[in-house]
């Protein structure tokens, strides 16, 4: 139900995305892997137009957007159907955890305040932050901030949540708590596209794994296919490099 057709993107002369096609079914968790510079984050950012694609089509359900003729209204609509969890959390710094989650509900969804509040509290409790409603981002640890970020994305009830390396800015000991929350919501059947370097997590949670390199999708399939029986040489090389502990003992 999410279909990317022939998405391309260039920064100056450098083509970062070369006609990417990708389909994500409802309730599916798609994990995108790839070395840095492979274009995976750019692809994710194209899906909600934080990067303007050079061409192609984005379809979510019945909604279709031709990237060559996107109007402001279309982009706005596209963004309302998606939500994003950022690598650097990007919580609104001048708002408390609760206000961060409520903001989109009040301003974009135009919910009445009391309803927005109730819903937001429930979501923050779900990510284990029921006790931190009134804390500002600067008073929260990275892991806590990212969990607020996830609650903020969930609140909008988007058709898809985009995760842009949600744990790579975190201290190692905080990665676990964030992954646990993502696992939990993945099980609830929320459609997600996740860019990550966490291989164990990808193997566990993904229904579908996409390996990108040099702006193209090199290989895709089920986690078992991609992790255990990679067909392409580039995929094998990458997996070997990123999971050295499987090959060497230190």
């Amino acid at each position: 139900m999410i279909k990317l057709k022939q998405i391309s993107k260039s920064f100056g002369r450098h083509q970062v995305l070369k006609n990417i096609d990708l389909a994500v079914a409802k309730g599916e968790v798609v994990v995108i892997l790839g070395p840095s510079g492979s274009g995976k984050t750019t692809l994710l950012r194209c899906v909600n137009y934080l990067e303007k694609p050079g061409g192609g089509e984005i379809a979510i359900g019945d909604f279709k957007l031709d990237c060559r003729h996107a109007r402001k209204k279309d982009i706005h609509q596209l963004r309302q159907k998606t939500a994003m969890v950022f690598q650097q959390y990007n919580l609104f710094r001048h708002k408390t955890a609760l206000e961060n989650v409520m903001e989109g509900l009040l301003i974009v969804k135009k919910l009445p305040k009391e309803e927005a509040r109730k819903k937001s509290i429930a979501l923050l409790e779900k990510v284990g932050l029921g006790a931190k409603l009134d804390a500002y981002p600067s008073q929260l640890s990275g892991g806590q901030q990212q969990r607020v970020g996830i609650a903020r994305a969930l609140a909008l009830e988007p058709e898809v949540i985009l995760f842009d390396e949600p744990t790579s800015a975190l201290d190692p000991e905080l990665v676990g708590e964030v992954l646990a929350v993502i696992r939990k919501i993945a099980k609830e059947g929320i459609t997600m596209i996740v860019v990550t370097h966490e291989m164990g997590f990808a193997r566990d949670v993904a229904n579908h794994v996409v390996f990108m390199d040099g702006g193209v999708i090199v290989e895709e399939g089920t986690p078992t296919e991609v992790f255990n029986h990679p067909r392409e040489e580039r995929t094998k090389q990458f997996l070997k490099r990123i999971t050295p502990e499987l090959n060497y003992s230190i």
Partner: peptide
């Protein structure tokens, strides 16, 4: 004001005016 703040506002579906008046300006 961090660029990420505007991106987060856009990602949440705010218009550029909402992002400026509610997120950027107060900070």
């Amino acid at each position: 004001v961090d660029r990420g703040q505007v991106e987060a506002a856009y990602a949440a579906g705010m218009t550029s005016f909402q992002a400026f008046s509610r997120i950027v300006l107060p900070q």
